[in-house]
Design a protein around this nucleic acid. Structure first.
Lengths: 116, 116
DNA sequence: AGAAACTGAAACGGTAGCGTAACGATCTCC
DNA sequence: GGAGATCGTTACGCTACCGTTTCAGTTTCT
């Protein structure tokens, strides 16, 4: 059955996660970057620049730049598609998976503080 | 009783909210700004620059700048404390409350898509 | 083969947040 | 009253993301 949250529970959950995220001074990803990362790891591949841009409703350079930054952090990887060499396929990495695992733990921990 | 989420539920929830947030191209608040806003609205007043800085674990100029930006957006208001005129007390606004209400609705909507 | 379409990336100027280091204003306390 | 502490803000140079435009490489279609 669906999860029914009250307004204060929903915001409290978000607040707890955001606060913890700020305090640990982790890599400070933009909302867009975080969204791209989650999209790559939660939605079945393949992922392309164009596809991500369409899904998020942003322009392609936004995706390219985000991949540049997150690539340097080791969170994602880029590989040219051999079947159509215009395309770039975005790959997951161990570092990226670990990063999201920590984010997930944060959400879970905050969820546990809620009574439902 | 506490809310027990699986890893994929937790990340799915976060993903859904972040994605929707990006797509509507709302005011694009930083993670820090969002956290400050939530802190102001969810924690009992009074809120000061120094207090927020300590809570978030950031320096005071970070708070000042965030309040500048969010003040221009009408999300918060600043008032000098008359009992100690060094202090600035941060006040809530209708616009800010509305903004967070929408964020809460987003979280609630994504929560409803989960089975628990 | 050659024009047109399409993909991701690079270039450009602009804007906003960052950390550090100062700064005025105010209060405290001797 | 005056030294010193405390508050929020401003100034400075820097970095990162933004939107738009342009580009090089690749494929497609006639």
């Amino acid at each position: 059955m669906p999860l029914e949250l009250s307004a204060s529970q929903a915001l409290g959950l978000w607040h707890g996660v955001a606060l913890e995220q700020v305090r640990r001074e982790d890599h400070d990803l933009t909302l867009r970057q975080t969204t791209i990362l989650l999209q790559i790891y939660l939605v079945p591949p393949p992922h392309t620049v164009r596809g991500l841009a369409a899904t998020l409703g942003v322009t392609k350079p936004v995706i390219t730049r985000a991949l540049d930054t997150m690539g340097e952090m080791g969170l994602v990887d880029r590989v040219r598609d051999d079947r159509d060499r215009r395309n770039v396929v975005i790959k997951r990495t161990v570092t990226g998976a670990l990063y999201l695992e920590k984010l997930g733990d944060l959400v879970i921990a905050q969820g546990r503080k809620l009574s439902v």
